[in-house]
C-alpha cells in the first residue's frame, strides 16, 4: 500500500467507523453514541496506523485506545439513570489521572527526579481537569456543534503540528482523532444534545491531551506550540462574553482559530520535518 493510500485510509476508516456507530446510536436515541462513535473511530484508526499493540502496551501512545474507551464510561454514567455528579467527576478524574500517568510514565522512569515528577504530574492533572471542567461548562450551555467544531479544529491543528515536528505517526493518530469529530459536529448540528456533547468530552480530551503530551515529551513539538494548543480549548469560556450570546460564540471561534493558526505557525518556524 502506497503512502498516499495509507494516509487516505487512515482518514477514511476512523471517520467511517465513527459515522456508522453514531448513526446507529442516533437511530437508537442514545446520547452516549457520540462518545462511543469517537472512541470506536479512533480505535479503528489507531489499529490501522499502529497495528494491534501488545498488552499491556509498551509505548505510551499505545495506551490511547484503552484510555478513549475508559472515557466512554463518563458518557454511560451521564445517560444511565439519575446522573450522579460525584460519580461522574470521579470517573472523569480517574480518566485524567490515568491519561497523565500512562503518557508520562517513560519520562518518570528514565528522566524525571521525584521533585520534577511531582511538579509535572500535579500541573498536568490540574491543567487537564481544568480544561475539562471549562469545556464541560460551555457544553452544558451549547448543545449544538460549537464545542465539537472548536475541538475538532484544534485536534486537526495538533495533527499538522505533529507532522511538522518529526512524527508522522503521532500526526496520523491525531488526524484519526480529528476526523472522528467531523460526524459528531454534523450530528450535534442536526440534533443538538447537551448530554451527547458533554459525554463525548472525556474521550476527545483524552485523545487531544494524550497525543499533545506524546508529541511534546517524545517528539519535537515545541514549547510554544504545545502551550498554545494546551490553552486553546479555554477559548470556549469566551462564549459567555457579550450581552448577546452570539458575540461570545463568535469571539470563541475566532480566538480558537487564532490559537490553532499560531500553533501551526510556530511549528512551521521551528519545524524539524523528517528527512530520511
Amino acid at each position: 500500500m502506497s503512502l498516499v493510500e495509507q494516509l487516505a485510509l487512515g482518514v477514511f476508516l476512523p471517520a467511517a467507523v465513527a459515522s456508522l456507530v453514531m448513526a446507529v446510536g442516533i437511530w437508537r436515541r442514545s446520547a452516549w453514541a457520540g462518545a462511543l462513535g469517537v472512541a470506536a473511530g479512533y480505535v479503528a484508526g489507531h489499529l490501522f496506523v499502529q497495528g494491534m499493540p501488545r498488552q499491556p502496551p509498551i509505548a505510551a501512545e499505545d495506551w490511547l485506545p484503552t484510555l478513549a474507551v475508559l472515557g466512554v464510561t463518563v458518557a454511560f454514567i451521564d445517560t444511565s439513570g439519575p446522573a450522579s455528579k460525584f460519580g461522574r467527576w470521579m470517573v472523569g478524574l480517574a480518566t485524567v489521572v490515568a491519561t497523565v500517568l500512562l503518557l508520562t510514565n517513560p519520562m518518570i522512569v528514565h528522566f524525571w527526579s521525584t521533585g520534577v515528577t511531582a511538579g509535572w504530574l500535579t500541573g498536568l492533572i490540574v491543567g487537564m481537569s481544568m480544561i475539562w471542567a471549562m469545556v464541560d461548562a460551555t457544553a452544558s450551555r451549547n448543545p449544538g456543534p460549537l464545542v465539537p467544531l472548536i475541538l475538532g479544529l484544534l485536534t486537526a491543528a495538533l495533527a499538522v503540528v505533529q507532522g511538522l515536528s518529526s512524527s508522522i505517526l503521532l500526526a496520523r493518530l491525531s488526524g484519526a482523532a480529528a476526523v472522528t469529530i467531523v460526524p459528531l459536529t454534523f450530528v450535534t448540528w442536526r440534533w443538538p444534545n447537551a448530554r451527547m456533547v458533554r459525554g463525548v468530552l472525556p474521550v476527545i480530551l483524552v485523545l487531544y491531551c494524550g497525543t499533545l503530551m506524546a508529541g511534546f515529551f517524545y517528539s519535537n513539538v515545541s514549547r510554544g506550540s504545545a502551550l498554545i494548543l494546551a490553552l486553546a480549548p479555554a477559548s470556549l469560556v469566551l462564549t459567555r462574553v457579550g450581552r448577546q450570546r452570539r458575540v461570545g460564540v463568535g469571539l470563541a471561534v475566532v480566538v480558537a482559530w487564532a490559537g490553532a493558526v499560531s500553533a501551526v505557525g510556530i511549528a512551521v518556524v521551528t519545524a524539524t520535518p523528517g528527512e530520511f
Binding site: 517513560p106 519520562m107 518529526s166 512524527s167 505517526l169 503521532l170 515529551f217 517524545y218 517528539s219 520535518p273
Partner: peptide, 21 residues
C-alpha cells in the same frame, strides 16, 4: 550525518528514543 534526520529517527516514528533510551 543529518541533524534533522537524527531528530526523526529519535521520534516515535522510529526508535522512540525517550521511551526506549
Amino acid at each position: 550525518a543529518n541533524p534533522k534526520r537524527d531528530e526523526h529517527l529519535k521520534s516515535p516514528d522510529f526508535f522512540n528514543a525517550k521511551q526506549f533510551p
